[in-house]
Design a protein around this nucleic acid. Structure first.
Lengths: 371, 371
DNA sequence: CAAGTCTCTGAATCATGCA
DNA sequence: GTGCATGATTCAGAGACTT
């Protein structure tokens, strides 16, 4: 929580919407200050002067003499500019999401690769209720594509809550194809006239999975194309901070009212299934110290094909092989690596139990002792 | 059939495999001579090191030289060259398919747009049985992407057999997300040594849908990266002509033997029967996404002896136990396994109802949506 | 023989904490 | 930053093998 407080103290821009062009507004943020970017950029190429080059000059609005090559180039300039601005404010181990359709996603993907982002996954949002194709000249366009990328190719410490996703998915790892309805019904923001406020409002369920997967409570989530604030609403509900950039006053007002009405989920429900990597390390000889295993005890694999002797210093011996539980486990099997905790077993009440169960005892005791 | 006869008379290259580099070989074909291109180019996977499964067995990766490129720029040059060569031999109203993964598909898509191709759809091939992510550091990569494009932006007369696809899809228009198994079992070509002949052989079902959708009997289908000839085998079976380009003699020999064994199917027998699907699996967090259960909600067993809290990620917590609905159900009962769907209940109108009833609601909605 | 169990494998950009 | 030891990590389907 130190991180949360630090973020709260120093940054007036936290949990606010900056009004203006995203490239210009992002210059006001310090570099390396956000954990996750979620971007839903315009898909349409005819942007009527909204496009700016990396040097902030405005790209000619191509309306009448519309030429597709010029237009692609303009869209590319625009894309490069906002991706670079996001890259500067992204932390070293932060990740970026972009959503798009076949009109723009290939260009966005190629450019972000060129800028040094490293694609981690492409994710397909399959729509349960897509718009039909009325002309019958193409396949029904029933999905959109998201790209999930780390800031750099060698970033390894990005946040990915693998175990949390798996626990919520019947103990199967989460796939790259997600199924959600489009945003309709009560969730869809409507104006006084009963018309939708924003043409491309994304469903909160989509953002909920994105943020559950790739952020932690207290993290800062940037949405450079904030629209009516789906990212902010979900971030607040999940106990994340947000910062948005949006040009249109009408969207900002709708987003602010919407986010104000969101209730933060209680901490106890926000707690995520933790990864085993995050659990405290327990050296094997702690089990000897705790008397859970005695020097000279015999360890076996699950089928009693291999046997090893526990030595007083917490190392194992199996024939001429000696070393750690992992090393000896690997050696007796002729493998490069082995998780000794799950490989080696002890006899308990006539049955073989993995020594990992003893480690769990130690961890429980540590927790009880407040260590 | 005039078209078919004309093609048969004048073209020695019809229904053959040209050996060599695809750009050079395609120069031997007349311009505007093929109706459909299906291209499965190298993905430029950029693999480093080795990957082992949790049991320490090694994954047989794509390490072939043909998939190695110096840089993105080199891959782009390669892509531009083969796309241009294909464009020249493609008829005015022809279409082109390319398949790829996130490693290469964005670059391919952007380049083909730059060259003047017009994207008609992007199609997602969802794999029923993808390789897992073994390190738990990303989402399981469970799909590949195909781009379907016409030669020019203003092409209107391309072939799309809308009604045939719809008739074979329970009278629903065909969506952009397709579900097929990867190529295994008897369909997978094996050498004398029992090893796969080609590392990336595509399933015939995939090509069958591609060619059924976008070609007519008698059409000419070009595959510039022919490999072991899936495109040729399916084309022959469906009464289309093929022409392939391939560099490796081993692949060509395997493809020729394979295609020789294919029998042309009578048109009447081409229709696929749609098999009844098993009930769709509904992950527990779908109930949260659908708003049927709120984070923080309490679940109980039928006699209210055990209680658990629903967390925002779709996992449960009961005391110190956390995990999936199944895992926590097992833990609170001290059992090895438990069907969380029938064990856990929610209070509804004063009575306890199993959460399985909520799953049925979701399934009904999914069915109504035609998913 | 049937049913259950074990083994193998597929386009993969697949660690991390501590000394 | 580097080096090294620790120890975390898989789903579906085919086919072989066992009881």
């Amino acid at each position: 929580m130190a991180r949360l407080q630090k973020a709260e103290q120093g940054s007036v821009w936290l949990d606010t919407i900056l009004k203006g062009d995203c490239v210009a507004e992002l210059e006001k943020l310090p570099s390396a200050s956000v954990d996750v970017v979620f971007a839903d950029p315009p898909y349409n190429l005819q942007l009527e002067g909204r496009l700016t080059r990396p040097d902030q000059s405005e790209v000619d609005a191509v309306t009448d003499d519309w030429d597709k090559f010029q237009s692609f180039a303009a869209y590319d300039d625009f894309t490069r500019a906002w991706l670079l601005a996001c890259r500067r404010v992204l932390k070293r181990d932060g990740t970026l999401w972009v959503i798009g359709s076949y009109h723009n996603i290939f260009r966005v993907g190629a450019i972000l690769q060129d800028l040094g982002f490293w694609v981690l996954n492409d994710i397909v949002w399959r729509k349960t209720n897509p718009m039909p194709n009325f002309r019958g000249r193409r396949f029904q366009n029933a999905h959109e594509t998201m790209i999930w990328a780390s800031r750099d190719a060698d970033a390894k410490r990005y946040t990915f809550n693998y175990d949390a996703l798996k626990a919520g998915n019947d103990d199967l790892q989460m796939r790259s194809d997600w199924l959600f309805p489009i945003c309709t019904g009560g969730e869809r923001l409507k104006g006084m006239d009963g018309r939708k406020v924003h043409p491309t409002q994304k469903p909160e369920a989509l953002l909920q999975r994105v943020l559950t997967a790739s952020s932690k409570p207290g993290d800062v989530v940037l949405d450079p194309f904030f629209g009516t604030g789906t990212t902010g609403a979900v971030a607040k509900r999940l106990g994340r901070h947000f910062v948005g950039v949006e040009r249109e006053t009408a969207y900002i007002e709708a987003a602010e009212a919407r986010i104000a009405a969101v209730e933060r989920t209680p901490d106890s429900a926000l707690e995520m299934t933790s990864s085993k990597r995050a659990l405290p390390r327990v050296p094997f000889n702690t089990l000897l110290d705790a008397g859970l295993i005695a020097p000279g005890a015999k360890l076996m694999d699950a089928r009693a094909r291999h046997e090893a002797e526990v030595r007083a210093d917490g190392s194992l011996r199996a024939g001429s092989h000696t070393g750690s539980i992992h090393r000896v486990g690997a050696l007796v099997q002729g493998l490069d690596a082995c998780n000794g905790w799950t490989f080696w077993h002890v006899e308990q009440q006539g049955a073989l139990a993995p020594i990992d169960t003893l480690r769990q005892v130690v961890r429980r005791d540590m927790e009880a002792a407040g260590v």
